[in-house]
Nucleic acid binder design. Structure first.
Ligand SMILES: [Mn+2]
Ligand SMILES: [Mn+2]
Ligand SMILES: [Zn+2]
Ligand SMILES: [Zn+2]
Lengths: 133, 133
DNA sequence: TTAGTAATGAGAATAATAACTATATATTCA
DNA sequence: TGAATATATAGTTATTATTCTCATTACTAA
């Protein structure tokens, strides 16, 4: 599985497997720490380079945030996320796409909407229970 | 207008006036360049310190983005934004708050939603016209 | 007027990510 | 097969927005 002009190296293949094998929406550094256990001298630059390449190929998805590290997601199907401000975990949300809000903006303002970014913040189910104790 | 333990310096007051006097959602550097024309030796650190202070006081709003500078908004009322990927301008959207989607996440997932972030990207009205020529 | 407090300007520090570079693999095809 | 060529790598340095540090200055209120 390789696009013309690109090679599927053991590093890239490992990085892809790590992303596909977790549901934790990991950061580049998480991927780096895991990858080192299989390829001890892999470099952080290689991790970033391949995460970008994989995202450009559409095999993974990058979620970036101001002030903190990007997270990567092996599930490239459309879905939204909830970030817990207490534990920091990112959870998938099984909501369908709100495409109607794009149309609303196009109709009301006349701009041409290509995408929207929607994410939720708060306290997750688990942290809510812990707070009560 | 000063909160106990804080002083309204000429720097802070100027920065607030600059933010309130524009609709362009400026960056810290834009504020810095404008401010220097009134207080030539104002420092960029002072601009950042005051922008943060004003945002904490709720007098302005900070909008941050991964990979590019934060923008500041003197309009602290609830409203969404559209960013043009062609000219880079940020436009206000007169949409009412989508509070129902917070409830949807709470009901479906059991997390406690404190806020959501929703922004739109695409090509603005003006850039669309220029593209056609 | 003076002691105490808060803010400033200048510059250094930070942190995530990208760019650079010499070396090492992979792929192509003679 | 084995050069010749193309791509990726490890290790390192650079970038960029923002924050931090600290000596100095400006308020504030007794
Ligand atoms: Mn996900
Ligand atoms: Mn606005
Ligand atoms: Zn949590
Ligand atoms: Zn535009």
């Amino acid at each position: 599985m390789s696009v013309a002009g690109t090679r599927l190296t053991k590093q890239k293949s490992l990085i892809l497997d790590l992303i596909l094998g977790t549901k934790c929406h990991p950061t580049a550094d998480w991927v780096y720490q895991e990858a080192r256990q299989h390829i001890p001298d892999i470099s952080l630059g290689t991790v970033y380079r391949n995460l970008n390449a994989l995202a450009n190929q559409g095999l993974i998805r990058e979620m970036n945030y101001a002030g903190s590290s990007s997270r990567y997601d092996g599930d490239v199907s459309q879905h939204y996320h909830f970030t817990c401000q207490s534990c920091g975990n990112v959870f998938d949300l099984p909501l369908e796409a709100f495409t109607m809000i794009d149309n609303l903006v196009e109709e009301q303002e006349g701009h041409s909407v290509e995408a929207h970014r929607l994410e939720f913040y708060g306290t997750c189910k688990t942290c809510k229970i812990e707070e009560k104790q």
